[in-house]
């Protein structure tokens, strides 16, 4: 069944390349093929995730491999849903590479199915980690859109063009969604920690970095109101903040072990 996993990585990669080629060469047919491959890869990825959940007898989000796979899956479904609603190619330009890169990262993590630690058998844990995959995916796609926005600016598109305004708005909306979900991650994590260990908050490095990421985005949301940070600034922020998200997601486990180091 691992073949489904590797097939989805190849599919996400092919979709990314074809989409980039289609947009650059303005060939709609290539974009259409990219979309079909992306949707099929998503179906395979979903199949793999369901199989893994059934084989493990639990929600497949209990270690770094499964979490990364969930993150990539969330990015893919968000991309597909947004495309279905907006019919804009740039949405897929951002979500396809995110799905591919995050799933490739998953491939380098230990894949074997392990028994769930007693501390992880909790509804609050499921909410905590489930909302984290979607939150990180929203932030990562906003970062991808940030790159796309800057590239468009470089190509000579003006900030006032309606497509650019839409991209800017989408970056903001994704950050809002990611922020709301990250709030759920932090609060459900606190409730879970209190249920499991009696402490709401223990300044464990992973918790601390989730809080740093949260405050960083909070500062940005205020700067948007206070200093009218939009357009180019917003795009740069979306990219830089993703580095913080990725550090919270992967870097902390490797560099700053603590209570969450089960996720290594």
């Amino acid at each position: 069944m691992e073949i489904l996993f590797f097939a989805s990585i190849v599919g996400y990669f092919a979709a990314t390349v074809l989409q980039a080629a289609g947009v650059t060469l303005r060939k709609d047919a290539l974009c259409r093929v990219a979309r079909i491959i992306f949707a099929l890869s998503f179906v395979l990825h979903t199949g793999f995730t369901i199989w893994r959940g059934v084989a493990a007898g639990r929600i497949p989000l209990a270690n770094q491999f499964e979490f990364a796979s969930g993150f990539a899956w969330s990015a893919a479904i968000m991309g597909l849903v947004l495309y279905a609603r907006l019919k804009q190619e740039w949405v897929l330009m951002a979500s396809m590479p995110v799905a591919f890169l995050v799933l490739s990262y998953a491939a380098f993590q230990p894949m074997e199915i392990k028994e769930l630690m007693p501390a992880l058998r909790s509804t609050w844990f499921a909410l905590h980690i489930g909302s984290a995959t979607f939150s990180y995916a929203a932030f990562a796609i906003s970062g991808g859109l940030g790159v796309h926005y800057l590239l468009q600016l470089k190509k000579g598109h003006a900030e006032k063009e309606s497509r650019m305004v839409q991209t800017d708005y989408m970056i903001y909306r994704l950050i809002c969604l990611g922020f709301l979900l990250l709030t759920v991650v932090i609060l459900s994590g606190a409730i879970w920690a209190e249920q499991a260990w009696s402490r709401w908050w223990s300044w464990d490095p992973k918790e601390t970095w989730a809080l740093i990421t949260w405050i960083l985005y909070a500062i940005f949301l205020h700067q948007r109101i206070r200093m009218k940070w939009q357009g180019k600034r917003m795009a740069w922020f979306a990219i830089i903040a993703v580095i913080c998200v990725l550090f919270t997601f992967a870097g902390v486990n490797k560099l700053l072990p603590g209570l969450h180091s089960y996720a290594v």
């Binding site: 300044w203 970095w209 740093i212």
Partner: peptide, 8 residues
């Protein structure tokens, strides 16, 4: 944020 980075 500065305190949290130092503390981690």
């Amino acid at each position: 944020i500065a305190c949290s980075v130092a503390g981690s």
